[in-house]
Amino acid sequence: MLLREVEYAKPGAVAEALQLLAANEGARALAGGQTLVNVMKARAASPDMLVDLNGLEELRGIELAGDGTLTIGAMTTYTELMRSAEAKARPILGEVCATIADVQVRNRGTIGGNVCSNDPTNHLPPLMVAIGARMTIAGADGEREVPAEDFFLGVYLTAVGPGELLTRISIPAGKKDGFAAVTLGAEGTCICNAAATVNGAVRIALGCVDAVPVVVTADSAGGVADAVRAANLTPPSDVHASSEYRTHLAAVLATRAAEEAAAR
């Protein structure tokens, strides 16, 4: 498919990328391109300019601080995260990334791209919300930090505004996490998913049931299904699952994720 005509810029520094994005209303940041290039083929998005982030070394890499906090650069690929010794400090991250799409997509697709596209069927938005990640957003006025719970605003919409970039994600120490999904084929697109973390109480974030991840808490894994039912979810119906079936899956998957988290 021939794309619509588009300008291309490959900045060498985050400041330069921010300037390009701010100065061109029709500019879009190009991360791994594993979603954006395809929606451009379909003309679902038609940016006038692509600001390629692949030359920004500042946005790459994973660091592990002394207190166990992980800092993941937004342009880190799934494959890089899966192979990172540092990222093993929070094992669920690599485990979930290993189930996203396929080798080729994992080699190019980025952690930042996954959360910034905020497709409701993506894996990482609910995971980031469940484990209490914090997102750093850079703009003309400097940086600000947004908790994952406030980062996802709507379908394909996040707290990253025009002229801004997600630069990194901070993740607190922890191991007691779980993730469960029902997918189209093995490790395909999620029909419904749930991420859980246990830190005293159980914290669940459900994906695919609303425009943004839905948070549910319970005292124990045994109480998760009732807590999900009490949330009165009204997920969308589509060719893959009715709203009723997704509601059912949400309780089942939240329980599976919570049991996995509790067992660690």
Partner: peptide
């Protein structure tokens, strides 16, 4: 498929396996 699903366009770029329908030539 030209949608990033089928993998018939897979090539190795700087040692990394990629689907060449989801990368611009300029990249």
């Amino acid at each position: 498929c030209d949608t990033g699903n089928c993998g018939a366009c897979s090539v190795i770029v700087d040692g990394v396996l990629l689907k060449s329908c989801m990368l611009l030539a300029v990249q």
